[in-house]
Simulated scan of single mutants.
Amino acid sequence: MRVLIVGAGVAGCALYRRLKPLGFTVDIIEKSSMLGSEGAAICLPANAMLALKKLGLSKPVLDLAYQVDQVEYALPSSKTLASASLHTAPLNKAPFVALKRDDLMSILRKDMAADVQLNSWPEDIKQDNNEVLVTFQSGETTSYDLVVAADGINSAVRQMVQVDSAPLSHKVTNWRYITKKPVAGIQPTYYVGNDSAFMIYPISEEEVYCYGQIIDEDGKFASLPSYKVIQDIFANYASPVSDCINNLTPEQPIVLGQLKTVKNTESLFNRVVLVGDALHGCPPSLQQGAGMSLEDINCLADALEQYELAEALKHYQQQRTARVTWTVKESNKIIKLAGLGRSPIGRFIRNTMIRLKGPANVVGWRKLLNEME
């Protein structure tokens, strides 16, 4: 069987690693001119680590990652709203860790980076019940038995097979960067303000991953210098947030983004299948970008190993639909929950819900891990 994987990110590289040993002819292409990463760091909840274990990669990831023990939600004043241990069932099924995104990609791409065809992308896809004809930007047309779209939330492949599938914007601008650890022993903490939020997540003994966001309906914050606007937006946040923003400079590498979400979570289009953010791109409220992507590729690879193609794709669709759909909806719901902070009554409702239920992401993780039993 000949397979084309479009995109050499987390999902694409992981799938290549699974399919190549099965004896398939696998092409993997990447539109960029070089293999890099588009993020500062990445958080890997327990389900992501379980998926990496199945890939045989949990140990190298753990060797480079930093394990955390609890999650806290707090106000900008640093007053705690709720906290939860990650060592209670079902959260203790695997470690919760974080590491630099480049480190994760280096592990995933080990011994396969040379196989990625750079500067390559599909311009057109035509298919019937027997083959997928892919025309590349070079003008060459190649026949495949299966095309896997692993090309991210703005997937070009998805837009070729699904009408009007551009992602929706939450009108929220976000920034991501790595800086010096502000407090020894700090655990992942999510500070929720009125129209903004800031996360601090340790990735080593010396460094933390910082994520900030603000409701930005007209896009004005996205057009300003990142280091300066971060300092202005989060000026009223107490230590340790203030420690993470006061020393920002124009030279600080900061990744600017806009929160988006896919319109729907349909995964299968005849012989074109969606994985990763092409399937379930959404806000990082549950830190499930990598976790869901790795689950996708293990599910697809297992099915392709066990069944004929048509049955394998049907199995993948059945296994992933409900879980992926819930994760996208829950991630979007948490963003809406954060947005309640724009009014006094909304803040009261939001903060009360967090106090009663606990950290919103932990609530979601419990459901995801319980369903794996």
Rank of each mutant, 00 (worst) to 15 (best):
R2V: 01
Q258S: 12
Y227W: 15
S85W: 05
A303W: 02
A235V: 06
L146C: 11
L286H: 09
D216C: 11
Y201C: 07
I335W: 02
E373K: 11
A310P: 00
P45D: 01
L268P: 03
E140I: 14
S120H: 06
M199Q: 07
P283E: 00
E330S: 04
N247M: 04
T189R: 13
K100M: 12
D102M: 06
P60G: 11
L118K: 08
W326G: 01
Y307S: 10
T327I: 05
M353F: 01
R355T: 11
S204M: 04
P167L: 10
V6R: 08
S33V: 05
D145F: 00
M105F: 07
M1A: 14
M160S: 02
S293C: 01
P60K: 09
L304W: 09
A235E: 12
D277C: 04
D243K: 11
V68F: 05
A74E: 00
Q137L: 03
K93S: 04
L368H: 07
F269A: 14
D145Y: 01
K333E: 03
A312L: 04
S85P: 11
T261I: 00
N194T: 13
K260F: 10
M292H: 02
K54V: 01
K100A: 05
S78C: 13
G193P: 00
T141K: 11
T261E: 07
Y177L: 11
C299E: 06
R18K: 13
K100D: 06
V229L: 04
E308G: 14
L286G: 05
T135Y: 00
V328H: 09
C299R: 06
Q70F: 04
I230L: 13
L146D: 12
K357R: 15
E205P: 00
P240K: 13
D277Y: 09
F24D: 05
N154C: 09
E251V: 13
A150Q: 11
G219P: 10
N270K: 13
E217I: 03
A51D: 01
A74G: 08
D302G: 05
H87G: 02
K31E: 10
F348N: 03
S242M: 10
E266P: 00
D102W: 06
A149T: 09
G39A: 12
M105R: 08
V255S: 04
T265L: 03
I345K: 15
T327K: 00
P225I: 09
P60D: 09
N247E: 08
A89M: 08
N351G: 05
G341Q: 00
L81H: 03
R355D: 14
Y144H: 12
L55N: 07
Y201I: 14
V61L: 11
L91T: 04
L35D: 05
S120F: 01
V163P: 02
T135S: 07
T173K: 10
A114Y: 15
F24C: 03
F348W: 14
H280R: 13
L86D: 02
Y237A: 05
K126L: 02
L268R: 15
E207M: 12
I297N: 05
L22H: 02
N270V: 04
C282H: 09
V3F: 03
N246M: 07
Y16M: 10
L108P: 08
I107K: 13
L19V: 08
F198Y: 12
L337N: 03
